[in-house]
Design a protein around this nucleic acid. Sequence first.
DNA 1: TCTGGGGTCCTAGGACCC
DNA 2: TCTGGGGTCCTAGGACCC
Length: 420
Amino acid sequence: MYALIDCNTFFASVERVFHPGLKRKPVVVLSNNDGCIVALTSEAKALGLHRGEPIFKVKDIVERNGVSIFSTNMTLYAAMSRRITNIIRRSVQHVENYSIDESFCDLNGYEAHFNLEEMMRSLADRISLWTDIPVSVGVAPTKTLAKIGSKFAKKYKGYRSVCMIDDEPKRRKALELFDLADVWGIGRHTLERLNYYGISTPLEFADKSESWVKTHLTKPGVQTWLELNGHPCIDTSEVYRNQSICTSRSFGDMISDLTQLEASVATFASSCANKLRGQNAGCKTVTVFVQSNRFRDDLPQYCNSASTTLVTSTSDTLEITSAALKALRSIYRPGIMYKKSGVILTDIAPNSPVQQDLFDPIKNRPQRAELMKAIDRINQRFGLKTIQLAVEGEKEQPWKIKCEHRSGNYLTVLDEILEV
DNA sequence: TCTGGGGTCCTAGGACCC
DNA sequence: TCTGGGGTCCTAGGACCC
């Protein structure tokens, strides 16, 4: 059996932990640049607000109802997520962090010694007691069914946080009542296709024959079908390394100047390199992209990207940044108002062994690696960007994102710790 | 005026090989 | 007029997830 532990409206719940006056009040959390709503409490949903909506379009609803607004604060949410994971790991050995607010537990073997429902309920209660974050848990023979269970647990209070789908009648009942569009793995296109063939509930889909599914859907569709029928086939891989690493941002203000664009790309490149070192990995390809503002049809539009291949797999900030800037200069066009840039690292592989290059222009790789370690240590101890590249520019720049409603880093920065 | 960011996996089709 | 069979590798784009 698998359990899915899902934090309810996670970002908004974290903000509420540190602003207890907001319990049972409407709260929304915005995307980067204070653009769109990315998380909202049920009280905010009840006012007609939706995930994904640009905040400026619903300004009057927000003002009229005194909705609390927060800029996104990933550092804070990630710190809280780690705390929750630590609590789960005290009870369950195999935990897979599927996303910042969801974890799968492999419960294989526990059923012999525990009542799984009681076990997961006491875990949910503990998370709630120790972190003040409410969670919903689904328990089922496959991950897809566990996800469905967690949605029921969230929707109906009667489950007291845990919904079990552990026998055939419960499975069929759940599939009959659940919304097909909300099934994990069924997106807009698959939904349209299934509707076209007269399938409107997960149960009708699950009851189709294997040959029908194989004819009309591709591999991911077949997997979902198997999972809904209780055959686990979505893999739990413990060891994980990214296939790609990306840092990109929309700018607070549009820019056209190459120097400023370079500063943004250098900043994103060094952030990527930092993430790469965090996984003990290196990359061989650096891609840069730039975009104008697609919402401004009065301005000339321009989007482009370029890649540079490095001689050898590396996580060196200096090397990755130079490669990114080289790629940027090859696609830069003057006279464009740019709204967004980004850096993507691919061809990622473990740090060792690395295939050396006979003609590698960098002769002191071991020392360079030590330099990166030293910089990382200093930045970890004294704060991000204590040491940075000069090309990344000064702190205040027009392209830096807006975040006017950011709460403090209560869990990670001593100076910002909550005062009572 | 203001419109997010970061991922994975799969497939079709092109380009190439014998 | 007739015009094979069996492969690999790569990439762009689609579909999906949070």
